[in-house]
Amino acid sequence: MIDRSPARKAFRVANGAFFVLYAVLCLVPVVQVLAISLSSSSAVAAGKVLLLPVSTTLRSYSYILAKDAFWTAMQVSGIRVVLGVGVSMLMTVLAAYPLSLPKEKFRARNLIVWLFLFAMLFSGGMIPTYMVVRYTGLINSIWALVLPCAVQIFNIILMMNFFRNIPPDISESAEIDGAGHWLILARIYIPLSLPSLATMVVFTMVFHWNSWFDGLIYMNESAKYPMQTYLQAILVQPNPRLITKATAELLRLISDRTVKSAQVFIAAIPVLVVYPFLQRYFVSGIMLGSVKE
């Protein structure tokens, strides 16, 4: 059924060209930020920088890397990602296992499933959530960035569906051998679902690395901001006083704009690094919750 008419051929070529253009459009903004961050401030101010660095210098990067505030934010983000992913994955597995069992084995199942589902449809909103976080004493604590978002309902549902597809014979024979629920979860369910769990770990890592709004409202001191919140504060400051003690000589090489660009690029690096791993799995991951026909 391959159509060899000239019109069809022309369409295919045009279609290929469209996707080349589309891919370039996706890359251009990021490439430009990288180019600006690697250029001297005088070249940037003169409007010479498009997609390639002009009078290349790493001074913007060395300026950022010498700042304590940068490393503090990096550290907060690091701790947040580790704690956040750990707690969230634990909660996902702990909730998914009981909820994946039939009602005969866990009689409270349906009620609890509805509790989780309803919380996905309705929320108290920003202000009451802020108050609850405040009343539970988490303001200014790293746990404010971990506990309120620890229960990822969508992940729990994905995991629950995955667990339900594990043949019941396996756990039944383990039960006959005297294994309890904890043992079945740890020795059968978790090992069998390692690939899905790995996907979820990477997704949760990206989620925690990218989150910034909770840092903004739950942390009162900028010294406790995670990386993205720190970056956001730098970018929206109306009168940026980012470069305070720069000498005239240094200012020819770096400017507010080159430093901001370098900062933006650094914050994007972790996502760009894990992205290939993410891409391998996310297609199957998001298909799980989709149309069943």
Binding site: M91, Y97, P98, F106, G125, P128
Partner: peptide, 29 residues
């Protein structure tokens, strides 16, 4: 046989009640 299941669901359920249902009740504000 169900006791371990309740123990498992307890931590996530508790977090759900506090940080999802807490704010819903907090809407009284």
């Amino acid at each position: 046989r169900e006791i371990p299941l309740y123990l498992m669901i307890l931590p996530p359920l508790l977090l759900l009640l506090v940080y999802s249902y807490g704010p819903m009740l907090g809407l009284v504000m």
